[in-house]
Design a protein around this nucleic acid. Sequence first.
RNA 1: GGAGGCGUGGCUGAGUGGUUGAAAGCAGCACACUGCUAAUGUGUUAAGGGCCAAAAGCCCUUCGGAGGUUCGAAUCCUCCCGCCUCCGCCA
Length: 423
Amino acid sequence: MLDIKFIRENPTLVRDAARKKHLVFDVDKLVELDKIRREAMTEVEAMRAQLNATSAEIAKIEDEESKKKSIEEVGSLKSDLKNREEKLVKLNEEFEVLMYAVPNIPDPSVPDGKTDADNVEVRKVGDIPAITNPKDHITLLKDLDLADFERGTKVAGFRGYFLKNEAVILSMALWQFAMSELRAKGFTALTTPSLATDANFLGTGYFPQGKEDVFHTQDDLSLVGTSEVSTMGMLRDEILKEEEFPKKYAAFSACYRREIGTHGKDTKGLYRVHEFWKVEQVVLCRADHVESVRLHEEITANAEELLQKLGLHYRVVLNCGGDLGQGQVKKYDIETWVPSQQKYGETHSASYFHDFQTRRLGIRYKDSEGKMRFAHSLNNTAIASPRILINILEQYQTQDGYIKVPEVLQKYTGFNTIPSKTS
RNA sequence: GGAGGCGUGGCUGAGUGGUUGAAAGCAGCACACUGCUAAUGUGUUAAGGGCCAAAAGCCCUUCGGAGGUUCGAAUCCUCCCGCCUCCGCCA
């Protein structure tokens, strides 16, 4: 959500933002509605003022007879007011719908483009591992008895899976590794609720537009697709202390995604699943663009450092306008090398929002001049598993059929290799 | 599952139908004073919004949330949410 005053003064910026993000949004309609709404508001408020003044007078009247008379006189004013209030409520509802659909303004450095195919590569890090005839992760998982997809779908339906044996331990090692690294950088470790109320989804920008993408329960709670929802929600309606900034959280939770728009895509294996686990970096800072940018680079670097320590080859891409979410100002995706496909697959996503989320969530602080301000927010993946297992298994496979465990994980796994089970 | 209690400003906490947007304390800010670095005194400090070019000013809304009663509600009624206590149940 943006400040209506900003929208009023900069309709062109909003219009351009929608165009760049390839979103349909009618700014002129919003500005016009805002005008009508304010006129109605002024009217209603004037009537309320009159009513309030009259009530105050009535309180002072001693004589019962004239008191009664004054009370009767208020009647018509009240019914008139009620009518106008009802109209105003409707206008406000319409206004709110549009306000929740306003796109945030992308940074000028965001390239034009429609889909992820138009994203711009920023850098490649590490070397493409030299593996002849690499097996894909599904084959590896089956050969080494690390997953069961058949019974996964039996139990959980399409995209269901069981991880088994070393794959389980490897996943847990990854979470521990990510947590330890981030804690060493001053992040606060959290486990967060996977079930959350609508307000949290609305506040982070996933609702109302993305309502179809999440699982709902019969108790008005929905399953989060990322712990960003619950972590940001944790601070909803709070007034924070400026000196606490930047607040950095390493938030771990199960994540659930319906993947309704992707039915035909990535139907095999661990790349696109309904249920996974993720350590997420969530950061709040003071309302300062430069600080947001600095931290955005920092959380991107944090994720890269994890990948480097894991010895994985990856690249960073700058997402184009069409590949940005409604609230995102700028986003880097980190794509990690998948040898069997000879291409990169998305494993991380780092974005910043300015005050788009915090304005919806009501996360504020008092600045040094005593002015109330909305904080800025950012987030990035640290490690999402099982997806990252694809890259590890494939990049660490050997010609002999076993898989080496990345050195930094060995102290968590307690083993150095995942042996081949096939003879 | 049963019974009861509670939810007030950054924090603690008073307030049960009419200048109460809300006492008091703490914290914050400003000024004054003190030769000692923190105390004392005085004043001041809620948020969101509308009118306005802006300031000043005026006005509206907000005492967990949503409705209702009333000329008038933090205060009465209904529902919902959250917290606490006791009993039961389960581990």
